[in-house]
Nucleic acid binder design. Structure first.
Lengths: 328, 328
DNA sequence: CTGTTAGCGCCTTCAT
DNA sequence: ATGAAGGCGCTAACAG
């Protein structure tokens, strides 16, 4: 059931139907009405696939994230989704689990579906994915994890955020730190880590022990036990994100360490849970919603051709002081 | 750049290319190799849109949920996504915000995109959406909110879950209840409410005051204040889901009521937060992941034609006792 | 085993 | 203002 049937029913040519549907040219009011009537009574819906065939935009974009189940991402998706919705564009969301082979499969699928663009929270730098994207000539904006200057990207001020946390911890009197970061193949993890390194370099009176893990609750649990085997318990644990911090907090509890009386813990993200965890988490707030929305806006500019050159947008963050940290 | 170029480059006909790509017929090993080579060096990707044009499956389905930002849904999406991924099907996810007009818009879009099916967590019963779905002849399975016997659906045992909670509260000695439920246009909310009604009917020694709100943190906050204005504080607040319970707990705190010493609170869902809230929440565990996965499997059966008749699957739940409730 | 050909539904010149 | 016709990339039916 297509434009042909509508044309027959309305007693006009398919070209006329197309014209009224797309308002692409003037059509006499009489025929316009007939067509609209036919559309309604026949319950006709245009076939986007046929449109897309003619090298038109498909009004779809791909979104690749590690895992929708991680509470950081739904807000990113929502932020992007709200902007895309206004532009009548449908996102296709893929979970890569941070696996680059899966990402590549997904990008190939996306190319086959001829999406108009890609919002990409990628797992690691890789020439393979870059080549793939470039060969498909597909507009991309990287989210949260910056690839390099050649591509557009949006990220939070990871470096600045971690610096603020470290300064705050120092001001509380802490000198003995553990740092549990995310996997260093992720650029946001690297930036946060760099801030800690720089802080260590600039302060001769402190000690920091490092561990890196996945950005997950289990990661926090695991890293705590790892560090405990090798080092003495610090006065504060700085974590690469909230999830790790939750894991660290629970690991502390299991080890009979009360947070914050015996030990302080900090996070990074300020998701919904942070304010309600036990204890409420001192952390740094970034806005995943804005991350997604800003990324989507940028992508739309590329798709429409309004923008050609790559840019990097850095979103501000702010310190949120709660009860998981205390003065020493 | 399409199958034609590949054919030219490989020195064969387009039909041969199609055949090797789809393994739809035997092709001599020599030509097969040539084609595969051409595909690789040209970086060719098949155009799914052209495939879909020929009334083939598009390998996409629609998923409509209220709001990805609500922590219950990401797991549903993930469960469905994992199953769909195995079948090489891409979900297109839409947030309806529980607004039926938006849902209808989204279904229309989905029809235009010729998706193979729909996973639908709808906001309310409506003839308009039913007609739309039937006119498009699109396989649907309803998630969590059951439409009626004509359609396939998957849901948790809402009635049984709420009954278990009520029984437990009663066994703790509670006789004075508030019930804060979700909006009754949602069938899962109605089922839970019905369990409470039946419980009230079967116990002459109890008192229950009712309020209904959205399934949200703010809803819990708001409903508490509403009930407080009209009734005295109960010994326990039964909530329609975890989010409402969190709101209720925080409302209690604002009113200088300590949970569970002064008042008990229960939830429904057992999301990640439930175990870590302050205090940890007594609730009923359902598995959103299984909900999504079961729904996706069912939908796949309909799409493949293996199943024709509608079914309703009810997923088991279980009581999780934590520290937000106490013996009276 | 392989090539040719007819559409799938739509938009877009090109005539009229 | 309108209609006829070509072609987007692909699959399947038909012919060899």
């Amino acid at each position: 059931m297509g434009i042909k049937q509508v044309a027959d029913y309305a007693g006009v040519s398919i070209a006329t139907v197309s014209r009224v549907l797309n308002k692409s040219a003037n059509v006499s009011e009489v025929k316009r009405k007939k067509v609209l009537d036919a559309v309604k009574t026949l319950g006709y819906r245009p076939n986007d696939l046929a449109r897309g065939l003619r090298n038109m935009p498909t009004s779809t974009i791909g979104v690749i994230i590690p895992d929708i189940t991680n509470p950081f991402f739904p807000s990113v998706i929502r932020g992007a989704g709200d902007i895309l919705h206004e532009a009548d564009i449908t996102p296709m969301i893929y979970n890569s689990d941070g696996n680059i082979d899966i990402e590549i499969e997904q990008i190939k699928t996306l190319i086959s579906k001829r999406v108009d663009g890609l919002l990409f929270m990628h797992s690691e730098e890789s020439k393979r994915v870059i080549d793939l994207i470039e060969s498909a000539n597909m507009p991309v904006v990287f989210l949260d994890r910056v690839e390099d200057g050649r591509f557009a990207s949006v990220k939070s001020d990871n470096y600045g955020g971690m610096k603020i946390i470290m300064d705050y911890a120092y001001s509380l009197g802490h000198r003995d730190y553990w740092y549990i970061g995310g996997e260093s193949k992720v650029s946001s993890a690297r930036e946060r880590l760099q801030a800690v390194f720089d802080f260590e370099r600039d302060h001769s009176d402190i000690s920091i022990k490092y561990a890196s893990t996945t950005f997950s609750y289990e990661g926090g649990l695991w890293a705590f036990e790892l560090l405990k085997k090798k080092f003495s318990i610090p006065t504060i644990i700085i974590c690469g994100n909230d999830l790790i911090a939750f894991g660290a907090i629970d690991a502390c509890l299991k080890n009979k360490l009360r947070v914050p009386y015996d030990i302080s813990v900090t996070g990074f993200d300020d998701g919904f849970l942070a304010a309600h965890y036990n204890p409420p988490l001192t952390t740094v707030a970034q806005s995943p919603y804005d991350l997604g929305a800003t990324g989507a806006k940028l992508l739309l500019e590329f798709i429409s051709g309004k923008r050609k050159r790559a840019v990097t947008r850095v979103l501000p963050i702010r310190l949120i002081i709660r009860q998981s940290t205390t003065q020493l």
